[in-house]
Design a protein around this nucleic acid. Sequence first.
DNA 1: GTTGCGCTTGACGCCGCGTCAACTTCTACG
DNA 2: CGTAGAAGTTGACGCGGCGTCAAGCGCAAC
Lengths: 260, 260
Amino acid sequence: MRTTPATASAPDTLDIAKLARLSGVTSRTLRHYDAIGLLSPAHTGNDGRRHYGRDEVLRLQHILVLRELGTPLSEIARIVDADDPAVTIATLRDHLGALTAERDRFARLAATVASTIDSLEKGHTMSNEEMLDGFKHHKYEPEARERWGDDAVDRSNAQWKALGKEGQQRHLDSHREVVEALGAAIRVGFAPDSDEVQAIVTQHHAWLSLFWTPTAESYRGITQMYVDDERFRRNYDEVAPGAAVLLRDAADIWAERHLS
Amino acid sequence: MRTTPATASAPDTLDIAKLARLSGVTSRTLRHYDAIGLLSPAHTGNDGRRHYGRDEVLRLQHILVLRELGTPLSEIARIVDADDPAVTIATLRDHLGALTAERDRFARLAATVASTIDSLEKGHTMSNEEMLDGFKHHKYEPEARERWGDDAVDRSNAQWKALGKEGQQRHLDSHREVVEALGAAIRVGFAPDSDEVQAIVTQHHAWLSLFWTPTAESYRGITQMYVDDERFRRNYDEVAPGAAVLLRDAADIWAERHLS
DNA sequence: GTTGCGCTTGACGCCGCGTCAACTTCTACG
DNA sequence: CGTAGAAGTTGACGCGGCGTCAAGCGCAAC
């Protein structure tokens, strides 16, 4: 929450070129993201020009982080739309595995190439077999492919896809249910340790667990963040003020009962 | 030079499916490579089926090595067609730079993501600025782009492109000239240290230098390889036997005079 | 007025194949 | 010898993530 000095009538919105320069992508890319519904401008002037606000800048940053990781735009849309740190964490975990694998792969390739150059420059005869040595045992064998590839990396992703379209929709709806149940609990005045609220937490934890297996500590951490981070708090509090706090308090109790 | 045991009428050719299994690419890919002229089968049966021989297998291996390095197929075609270790070295040098840069990039990304996960799990509020910290200064600033990007990496590539179509053809022809001048020198009986042969070496060195700046040692190494490696020796000796040896001997002298 | 910049939409291009579709041919089996 | 099925063929379109024209509009400065 930074207070921007109110310089006259500086509208605090960026046109497409400014945002492009700031973010390092081209304006074409921004138009593309608009076209596919990944990032729409805050509003469009009556002359058709796109104007972006702070939220859009943040969303773009989020998008770029994921894009850096090689995530396809379709999946990026999923993630930023879900707008939940649990989903983010799950995805990041996957990608961390992929990143270290990629790093190692490039390290091996670089080593092979370096030694290839070396032996070439010294005039050694380089058999094709030798040149291939560095490559053979890391990509063309299905065994290795599983090690660095789809298997470990995209596990939660696979789970998600296995749900199918309806399953995915049900899962998103399931979160809606949690949020609305929390709102109802607040309006009725249930306490965090009441059976009703604890049941909601059970459902919330199950929802989380599809992507990711939280520990007692990290589950507390996540729910704490729902309170701390305005972006996520909004998701809960827009149904009923205090919902995020209620979830956190209830999750504290739930975690102690079920996760430790 | 391996003598394959002549088992009856085993034709020593592979059909497309066998080659696909051996190399790990799909038959579709092989057809694609045929279509774009990157790898044509040794011969096509009168029923239209593709048959590949040993040379094609080797060429495919070469192609796959380069493809591993992220080389676009158009450039791969250039390299395997040139069929000269100097070109290979130049390209490998470029790619070594790219590979180490990629390795470092993924290492940085992995570190950023790991710390992001950590702070998310502990429930810290993560500002987007923080999340972007690992990304900002490695890709989106033109300064950094030059460091790991087009500038250093694709220098010889740029030079090559700057030649234009005719220049490229002239350059390839220039190598023809060298080879044929060597053949003529052999037939006339010029010595390695004769002015005529030394002039040929000057031209050969100039030809090399477009891609790559050889040192005395590496220039000797390359010309030695022309002698050692049958694939490259053929290029020279097919014009006149002993051409590769003559070039090596002359290059030894030339390197001592001009490169040390 | 007009020049020129920066935005707009719309459309096609690119790479490296994957993936049908429709067809021919080789091989194995009865 | 007929036939089924496996495996080959060509041809075509699709995809992701934009790059790159082309043609036009709006606004500011001269």
